[in-house]
């Protein structure tokens, strides 16, 4: 075999084998990855809605909302995902909201790539807990009614802005004081 044919044959064989191995790994891991993602989502929803034991997803006006219920099927609150633009990438946030009381029930940072030790501390309860029981009519302005993390203003601002703007949408679907 001349050297050019050999080059092509070897490269093609190596690529084919690599492709097959990867296809197989993907097939093995994909169900597990989906399951993990689903579990993480459910955990986040149940965490931001106190008292919720299970959830159902509903599509309304292009938004995906998760309704949290306790074991008797009593609705405990709704949760939705929102994204803010942080210091070094998007920040995904799960927000719990109780329309009956017009209050937030909690937030959870799902993913972010903020600076470790600075912006990344928005993940800590010291920051996230302050959104619990916060009224949806509040201003959500950092350093005014939102405590910031020492040394970081951009990340808390991104979180506050994202929550405030998505609340404007959600309260149109589920107005304060109304049922859900």
């Amino acid at each position: 075999m001349n050297q050019y044919a050999r080059m092509i044959v070897v490269l093609v064989i190596i690529s084919l084998v690599a492709g097959a191995v990867l296809a197989f790994s993907y097939k093995v891991t994909n169900p597990k990855i989906q399951e993990q993602a689903q579990q993480a989502l459910q955990q986040a929803v149940l965490k931001v809605i106190p008292g919720a034991e299970k959830m159902t997803a509903v599509e309304k006006q292009g938004m995906t909302l998760y309704i949290g219920m306790d074991n008797q099927g009593n609705k405990k609150g709704i949760a939705f995902k929102t994204t803010g633009s942080g210091f070094s990438g998007p920040i995904e946030i799960m927000v719990g909201y109780n329309p009956r009381e017009g209050k937030l029930t909690g937030i959870e940072i799902l993913s972010m790539s903020e600076t470790p030790g600075l912006g990344a501390r928005i993940k800590e309860p010291a920051f996230t807990d302050q959104f619990k029981d916060k009224s949806v009519s509040d201003e959500f302005i950092p350093k005014k009614d939102v405590k910031v993390v020492t040394g970081a203003t951009i990340s808390p601002t991104a979180v506050s802005k994202a929550i405030k703007s998505s609340l404007a949408e959600v309260t149109k679907i589920y107005p304060v004081g109304g049922d859900f």
Binding site: M7, L11, I14, A18, L22, S25, K32, I33, Q36
Partner: peptide, 30 residues
């Protein structure tokens, strides 16, 4: 592996194992 295409071959091998680590880590160590 013919010497002239050795680098692409190595890269394919390395990329395959890296992607495997990536997938398995995502699945089992989220």
């Amino acid at each position: 592996i013919p010497p002239k295409v050795r680098i692409p071959c190595y890269i394919i091998v390395i990329a395959t194992f890296t992607t495997m680590v990536d997938l398995f880590m995502k699945a089992y160590f989220p």
